[in-house]
Amino acid sequence: MAHLSYVFIIELLGTMAFAVSGAFSAMEKKLDVFGVVVIAFVTAIGGGTIRDVLIGNLPVTWMRDIIAPSVILATAVVAILYRNIFHNLPKTLFLFDSLGLGLFTITGIQKGLDAGIHPAICVALGTITGCFGGVIRDLLLREIPVLFHKEFYASACIVGGVVYFLLLYVVSAPVAQTVAIVVVCALRLLAARFNWRLPAV
């Protein structure tokens, strides 16, 4: 039960982080209040929706539980009301996006494990959960998705997923999940700091 509670907390924090990321992205584009809320929703639920459809978890999670939509709406409203305290929107967006990436990667992996899916596919599900809300957000905002042209993004999710499964042999699941989240976030931040990129074609 404690394990399930910890996973729930991870998912809740990830939802909040991506809702903030989506809201700030929309505010950068000068969208109206409705547009900001819509982009916050899409960013927060996009990856999880695709994951749930792929594993047959229907209706998808956010449609069966009012908690997630309520949290997204509340987070978007707070982001709008307190946007002026963040003097550097791009940096704030990047930090929340990195945090959401790490949190949702682990959420996706755990959903795959609960469905009895092979660990390698679970890593792919974690990557989808972490990345594709941002992909949909960027497409709606007429940007090239960060997944396809920026520093480590999907790669960070994959490394974090592999670290998680390796750690499961020596530590408890909550500890492995926490370390994996830190690995994903740290890789994203370090990649930005030192300009690590995959080779362009």
Score class of each variant (00 low, 15 high):
residue 130 G to N: 10
residue 142 R to Q: 15
residue 161 G to A: 01
residue 153 Y to F: 08
residue 150 K to D: 14
residue 132 F to K: 04
residue 154 A to G: 05
residue 139 L to R: 12
residue 169 Y to T: 09
residue 144 I to N: 14
residue 133 G to W: 00
residue 172 S to M: 12
residue 171 V to C: 10
residue 140 L to Q: 15
residue 150 K to R: 14
residue 135 V to K: 08
residue 169 Y to E: 13
residue 126 G to I: 00
residue 167 L to Q: 08
residue 161 G to K: 02
residue 149 H to L: 12
residue 138 D to A: 12
residue 147 L to H: 08
residue 165 F to W: 10
residue 162 V to C: 02
residue 155 S to V: 01
residue 130 G to D: 09
residue 164 Y to H: 10
residue 155 S to N: 05
residue 128 I to L: 05
residue 165 F to A: 10
residue 147 L to S: 04
residue 164 Y to W: 07
residue 131 C to Y: 01
residue 129 T to W: 01
residue 166 L to C: 08
residue 141 L to P: 15
residue 137 R to T: 11
residue 127 T to P: 06
residue 169 Y to Q: 14
residue 149 H to D: 14
residue 132 F to N: 04
residue 129 T to K: 06
residue 163 V to C: 14
residue 155 S to E: 09
residue 172 S to W: 08
residue 137 R to V: 09
residue 133 G to K: 00
residue 171 V to W: 11
residue 137 R to A: 09
residue 155 S to H: 05
residue 168 L to V: 01
residue 132 F to H: 03
residue 149 H to Q: 14
residue 160 G to D: 01
residue 154 A to Y: 00
residue 171 V to Q: 10
residue 152 F to R: 05
residue 136 I to T: 03
residue 171 V to H: 11
residue 140 L to V: 14
residue 148 F to I: 07
residue 135 V to Q: 11
residue 131 C to L: 06
residue 155 S to G: 10
residue 142 R to L: 14
residue 167 L to T: 05
residue 154 A to C: 00
residue 156 A to E: 05
residue 164 Y to G: 07
residue 162 V to D: 02
residue 167 L to K: 07
residue 144 I to L: 10
residue 169 Y to D: 13
residue 136 I to R: 03
residue 164 Y to L: 13
residue 154 A to S: 02
residue 169 Y to V: 03
residue 129 T to D: 09
residue 153 Y to H: 06
residue 167 L to E: 03
residue 148 F to D: 11
residue 153 Y to R: 04
residue 167 L to M: 07
residue 169 Y to C: 09
residue 132 F to Q: 03
residue 173 A to R: 06
residue 165 F to L: 11
residue 163 V to T: 13
residue 173 A to L: 04
residue 154 A to H: 01
residue 141 L to Q: 15
residue 164 Y to T: 07
residue 134 G to K: 09
residue 158 I to E: 06
residue 168 L to H: 06
residue 159 V to M: 12
residue 131 C to E: 02
residue 154 A to E: 01
residue 135 V to A: 06
residue 135 V to C: 06
residue 135 V to D: 11
residue 168 L to I: 01
residue 127 T to M: 11
residue 169 Y to A: 12
residue 150 K to C: 11
residue 160 G to F: 00
residue 159 V to G: 09
residue 164 Y to M: 13
residue 142 R to W: 12
residue 164 Y to N: 08
residue 157 C to W: 09
residue 170 V to G: 11
residue 161 G to R: 01
residue 128 I to S: 04
residue 134 G to V: 05
residue 166 L to F: 06
residue 135 V to L: 09
residue 162 V to G: 02
